[in-house]
Simulated assay, not measured.
Amino acid sequence: MAGLEGTEQPRQRVGTAPARWSPAVEDELALKALELFGDPTLGEVRLPSRPESAVAARRLTQSVVMRHWGLSERLTEHAVLLVSELVGNAVRHTGARHFGLRMLRRRGWLRIEVRDPSRGLPCLLPVREMDVSGRGLFLVDKLSDRWGVDLLARGKTTWFEMRVADR
């Protein structure tokens, strides 16, 4: 996964200055993620169950939600954050080698799904002010309009939906 390591900035190449963040650099990295993993609007894409895959999932989400679907920056920020939380849960808690990411848009809604092979259900826990972890599903619950888990014959799909204004 060259160029998709756990940092948000591209790696410095030998003999060149480090690339600074810009929309053009972010677009290029999103295109690389689309080339490497596929388009999650056309079907489920598989990503390796490693922490750095959260970066790729965020880039795919940003690319699809804002650039492809043309939705608002605020909605895109929330979708990117929630994808990161669901991917983090799939990576940390399932022991899987891969997880799936899929994005759907229908009139008035967007839906993002993360599928993994574990049938262990995520738990929405009470969050206290000083907690340093365990806030993922709390954020999903607060920032999405609906969310849930669908048990499958082999694993589960954790999803969230957000209302969107159709033009």
Score class of each variant (00 low, 15 high):
residue 153 A to H: 11
residue 91 V to I: 13
residue 78 H to L: 13
residue 42 L to P: 02
residue 152 L to Q: 13
residue 48 P to S: 05
residue 51 P to W: 06
residue 69 W to F: 15
residue 29 L to N: 00
residue 29 L to R: 15
residue 116 D to F: 06
residue 136 G to K: 01
residue 121 L to Y: 01
residue 96 A to V: 10
residue 87 V to I: 09
residue 45 V to I: 15
residue 145 D to M: 01
residue 4 L to I: 09
residue 28 E to M: 09
residue 93 H to W: 07
residue 4 L to P: 10
residue 47 L to D: 03
residue 118 S to R: 05
residue 41 T to A: 01
residue 34 L to A: 06
residue 67 R to V: 03
residue 154 R to I: 06
residue 101 L to D: 01
residue 57 A to I: 01
residue 98 H to L: 11
residue 56 A to D: 01
residue 89 N to Y: 11
residue 41 T to Q: 09
residue 56 A to I: 02
residue 157 T to W: 01
residue 104 L to V: 14
residue 154 R to N: 08
residue 43 G to S: 14
residue 55 V to R: 12
residue 84 S to N: 11
residue 73 E to P: 07
residue 125 L to C: 04
residue 142 K to M: 09
residue 86 L to D: 05
residue 54 A to E: 11
residue 90 A to C: 07
residue 7 T to Q: 04
residue 142 K to E: 05
residue 40 P to C: 04
residue 83 V to L: 04
residue 110 L to F: 10
residue 42 L to Q: 15
residue 19 A to I: 05
residue 107 R to F: 09
residue 76 T to C: 15
residue 159 W to F: 15
residue 78 H to M: 12
residue 114 V to R: 04
residue 81 L to N: 12
residue 134 G to E: 02
residue 103 M to H: 03
residue 144 S to R: 01
residue 17 A to R: 14
residue 92 R to I: 00
residue 128 R to K: 14
residue 102 R to C: 07
residue 74 R to L: 11
residue 27 D to R: 15
residue 147 W to I: 03
residue 94 T to P: 09
residue 109 W to T: 00
residue 113 E to V: 06
residue 6 G to S: 10
residue 114 V to H: 04
residue 32 K to S: 12
residue 33 A to P: 10
residue 14 V to Y: 13
residue 52 E to A: 09
residue 31 L to T: 08
residue 77 E to Q: 14
residue 73 E to A: 14
residue 84 S to Y: 04
residue 23 P to M: 08
residue 47 L to P: 05
residue 53 S to D: 04
residue 167 R to H: 08
residue 119 R to A: 14
residue 19 A to L: 15
residue 98 H to I: 07
residue 29 L to K: 10
residue 109 W to G: 01
residue 83 V to E: 04
residue 118 S to A: 08
residue 166 D to F: 01
residue 69 W to H: 07
residue 27 D to S: 13
residue 8 E to S: 12
